Computed example of a mutant assay.
Amino acid sequence: MNKPFKSGFISIIGRPNVGKSTFMNQAIGQKIAIMSDKPQTTRNKIQGVLTQPDAQMIFIDTPGIHKPKHRLGEFMVRTAENTLNEVDVILFMINASEGYGKGDQYIIDLLQKVNRPVYLIINKIDLIHPDELLPLIEQYKDKYDFAEIIPISALHGNNVIHMLEVIKQQLEEGPKYYPDDQITDHPERFIISELIREKVLHFTREEVPHSIAVVIENVDQNGNNKLLIQATIVTERKTQKGILIGKQGSMLKKIGKAARKDIEALLGTKVYLELWVKVKKDWRNKQSQLHEFGFRSDEY
């Protein structure tokens, strides 16, 4: 007798920089969400699809919940909070090396209003001594009635397979929402723009914070069996534009070279990547610019 097919939507929430994107990439087995050691890297809901012979799990990687400082930040927090009543399971992820903080209590207060099973995922256990784990579990256990507490290392894959099995058991019988070979609901242009943005964050470090957006201007097949991708990196200040371009274009070349490798791995084809930099002052606080760059909400 065949096992019933299970499916469901799983939201991953938590403070910024707890490893939500790293976990989703690890679970899916392919890079679809950008990773950075800077907080608030994820801006939109990113759905990753894991299809197994007996189940399909759709993970929603949400922006880190934080105190917003601009309209983009408000959009990000609202995006994360709005997923809580739209899913079958919630994974509340924390950073083992940071421990309990005020931001966690804010999320726990939100969860009190939600009628969904919530799993506490203690990530980055590779960064702490094993003796520190039990006190951490005890601390959080008293704050909320979690369905289960699961320690993992998303980066190294420790305990991730067990965690996926636990989630699968929680899901009910349901349809296959996506084809077997589909790993995300986002169009390729979105993923490409995110991979470029990841490289900007990586190479510019603190010099260019989260005041950048990446717009894919054109994707076309050129005459050399390469995919031509033209993209614009938008920033808020002229000084940041100078940093992004670098001396004789060195920084832009470095960003482009690293991004191209990830894009080629994603698409399975050779890519010719052209990058430009434009300045749009204070775009994160302008509704029209937020819409133009894909940040849409009913309240904007």
Rank of each mutant, 00 (worst) to 15 (best):
K176T: 11
K176M: 15
Y178E: 07
Y178C: 11
P179I: 04
D180P: 13
D181I: 02
I183G: 03
I183R: 07
I183S: 06
T184D: 06
T184E: 09
D185S: 15
D185C: 04
H186W: 11
P187N: 13
E188V: 15
R189D: 09
R189Q: 10
I191K: 02
S193Q: 01
E194P: 05
L195Y: 15
I196P: 01
I196F: 08
R197L: 00
R197V: 00
R197S: 02
E198Q: 15
E198V: 07
L201I: 07
H202E: 14
H202A: 13
F203L: 14
T204F: 03
E206R: 11
E206C: 06
E207T: 14
E207I: 08
E207F: 07
E207Y: 01
V208W: 05
V208S: 02
V208D: 06
P209G: 00
H210A: 10
S211Q: 07
S211C: 11
V214S: 05
V215M: 14
V215R: 13
V215W: 13
I216A: 03
I216G: 03
N218P: 02
N218G: 05
N218M: 10
N218C: 12
V219K: 05
Q221S: 12
N222M: 03
N222R: 04
G223P: 04
G223Y: 12
N225Q: 08
N225E: 12
L227A: 02
I229A: 03
Q230V: 13
A231D: 00
A231Q: 03
A231N: 08
T232H: 06
T232W: 04
V234K: 09
T235M: 06
R237P: 07
R237Q: 11
K238W: 15
T239H: 15
T239L: 14
T239E: 15
T239Y: 12
Q240T: 01
K241F: 12
G242Y: 09
G242P: 15
G242R: 10
G242S: 10
I245F: 03
I245S: 11
G246M: 01
G246Q: 04
K247Q: 13
